[in-house]
Structures are given as structure tokens and as C-alpha cells.
Simulated assay, not measured.
Amino acid sequence: MGNKTTTRFNWRMIAGQLALLLFILGAIEYIVSAEIVSSLYLSQPTLVMKEIIRLFWDGEIFHHLSVTLWEFLVGYVLSAVAGIGTGMFLVLIPRAETFFKPFLSALLAVPKVTIIPMLMLWLGIGLSNKIAIVFLFCFFTIAFNTITGIKQTAENHLKVARVFEATKLQTIMKVILPSAAPTIFVALRLSAATGLVGALFGEMMASKDGLGNLLVKATSLYDTTKAFAIITIVTVVSVLIIALIDLLEKKIVLKWKSS
């Protein structure tokens, strides 16, 4: 009975969300077509959808999408490995945390936008520049959340590991990481969205390819429909990436729990 009620509630929730989305899109369609808002500032959803179909049909979007995704993927994976590794290192070696944490906090406080011109000077405007930007947008969130997650490990669980004479590696893999996993995955989700924004921002600043470059060209030509089409594509890609991370979290956490 409870499962049926929950399922019914979920379907009602989804139906309500779709109704709200259709209402918003319908309202935008009306106010633009009725010229209440100029098409220079906003585009009709139907025209945006046609532009998205055209971009994929012509194949124009594939090269730019692959460039942006590759920049994001490399920078994101590097930041995840470095962030989780740094967080574990600082917590598991208390003196290292005391020594290095002020420096990390200071670097975190530096606005990333101010560093981007320097990265262009050091790395040029190619792939390495965008990877570095994505890394900077993601690393600190992952590192600090890893520190927080590990510190939340229950002392009783650590005592049980000691009683069973678990090695340092076994304690990390069987107790510390499973306990910190929810907090770490929160950081990975947040960083996925900000990392993709970082890649786009880098491309908008200086690039020959990528969705950011395509967006700059569209806005410079006052092609509002194409600009909104690109923004929609980026939004969908971001949602899919986060959904993939959610799926990964469920599989990893379930595996840890079963073991």
C-alpha cells in the first residue's frame, strides 16, 4: 500500500513539474510572439528547439561539444583525484593539515576569474588552459568536502577497525572512504556543474573551438535563438553529467555497504 502511494505521489510530482515547465515555455512563447518582449532579448522556445535540431542535423554542434566535454572531463578527473587525495592526506596526517590548510584556504579565497588571464599568459589559449581552469573551479570544493567527510567518520567504526587489527589501507578503504562518500559525492556533483561553467568561461575568454566560443559568436551577431539553443544544450549536458554521478554514487556506496 505504501509503495503504491509513493509511486502515485511521484507521478503526480512529475506531472506537476511538466505542467509548470510547459506553462513557463508557453508564457515565453506568447510574450515574444506578441512582441511584449523583443526577440533581441528573448527567443521563442519553438524557434530554440528548431535551432537545436538544426545544429545537430547539420553536425555543427558535434565538434564544439566534443571539445568542451574533453576539456571538462580531463580537468574534472584530475581535480577529483587530486582533491580527494589531498583531503585524505591532510586529515590522515594532522600535522600536514595544520601546516597546509591556511595556504589552501588562501588559494580558495582568490577569485578564479583573476587567475584566468595569467593562465592564458602561462599556458596559451589551447587545451591545457581550459583544463587548468576546470581544475581550479573543481579542486578546492572536492578537497574541503573530503576533509569534512573524513572527519565525520564515527569513532566507534574506527575502534572496531582497530579491534580487528585492520591495516591502514583496510581502514581507509573499508571505514573512512565509505563514511566520507556521501559528502565527497556532494562535492563531485557541485564541481561537475561549476567545472562545465569553467570550461565554457575559458572558451568565451579565448578559444577557437567549444560551446563557449560558439556562444560568443552567436551573441556577437545578436543571434538570440542560437544563443539560447546553446545554453539549453549546456544545461541538458550538465543535468546528464550530474545524473551519471548520481548513478555512480549509488553503485559505489551500494558496493561498499554490501562488503
Rank of each mutant, 00 (worst) to 15 (best):
S33Y: 12
L107N: 15
I231S: 09
C138M: 08
L40V: 12
A132D: 05
I53E: 09
I176R: 05
L108D: 10
A154K: 15
V67G: 00
T225C: 03
A154S: 14
S220Y: 04
T7M: 12
F99Q: 05
V239G: 09
L247Y: 12
L248H: 07
K151M: 09
I184W: 02
K257D: 12
V239L: 14
M13C: 11
K159A: 15
V110S: 06
E51V: 07
G83T: 03
A96M: 14
E203T: 08
I147F: 01
G126L: 00
S128M: 12
A243M: 13
L254K: 15
S33V: 11
G212F: 01
A132I: 03
I14M: 11
I176D: 02
S66G: 13
I131S: 04
Q152R: 14
M173I: 10
V197S: 03
E29D: 10
K226D: 01
G198A: 09
I14N: 10
V77N: 05
I245Q: 01
T232E: 03
S128W: 11
F56Y: 14
S259V: 12
A19N: 09
F72D: 00
A218M: 05
V234Q: 03
V253N: 04
A199P: 04
R12I: 11
D58N: 15
S38A: 10
L136I: 11
R8N: 12
F135A: 03
V77C: 08
V216R: 06
I115K: 04
A180V: 04
D246Y: 08
R95L: 15
W70N: 12
P94R: 07
G2N: 13
S43P: 02
I131C: 00
G16Q: 05
L78Q: 00
A193T: 13
S43V: 06
W256A: 11
F72W: 07
